[in-house]
Computed example of a mutant assay.
Amino acid sequence: MLGVRLDSDLEERLAAVARTQGRSKSDIAREAVRRYVERHDEAFLAEAKRQSLVAAAHDRHAKDDDWDAMYAESLT
Rank of each mutant, 00 (worst) to 15 (best):
M1S: 14
M1F: 12
L2I: 12
L2N: 08
L2P: 00
V4D: 05
V4E: 07
V4S: 06
V4G: 03
R5Q: 12
L6Q: 03
D9M: 08
D9A: 13
D9F: 07
L10Q: 09
E11L: 10
A16V: 04
V17F: 06
Q21P: 01
Q21G: 09
Q21D: 11
G22W: 04
R23D: 04
R23S: 07
K25Q: 13
S26G: 10
D27V: 07
I28G: 00
R30F: 05
R30W: 03
E31H: 14
E31W: 14
E31S: 12
A32H: 05
R34S: 07
R34C: 03
R35A: 10
V37H: 10
V37F: 13
E38L: 15
R39V: 01
H40Y: 10
H40M: 05
A43V: 02
A43I: 01
L45H: 05
E47W: 07
E47P: 01
A48H: 12
A48E: 14
R50D: 05
Q51W: 03
V54K: 06
V54G: 01
A55E: 14
A55V: 02
A56Y: 07
A57K: 11
H58W: 12
D59P: 01
D59S: 14
D59A: 11
R60P: 00
H61F: 09
H61R: 15
A62C: 08
A62G: 04
D64A: 09
W67I: 14
D68N: 10
D68S: 11
D68W: 01
A69W: 03
M70L: 13
Y71P: 00
Y71E: 15
Y71F: 11
Y71A: 14
E73A: 06
S74H: 05
S74G: 09
L75E: 09
T76N: 10
T76H: 09
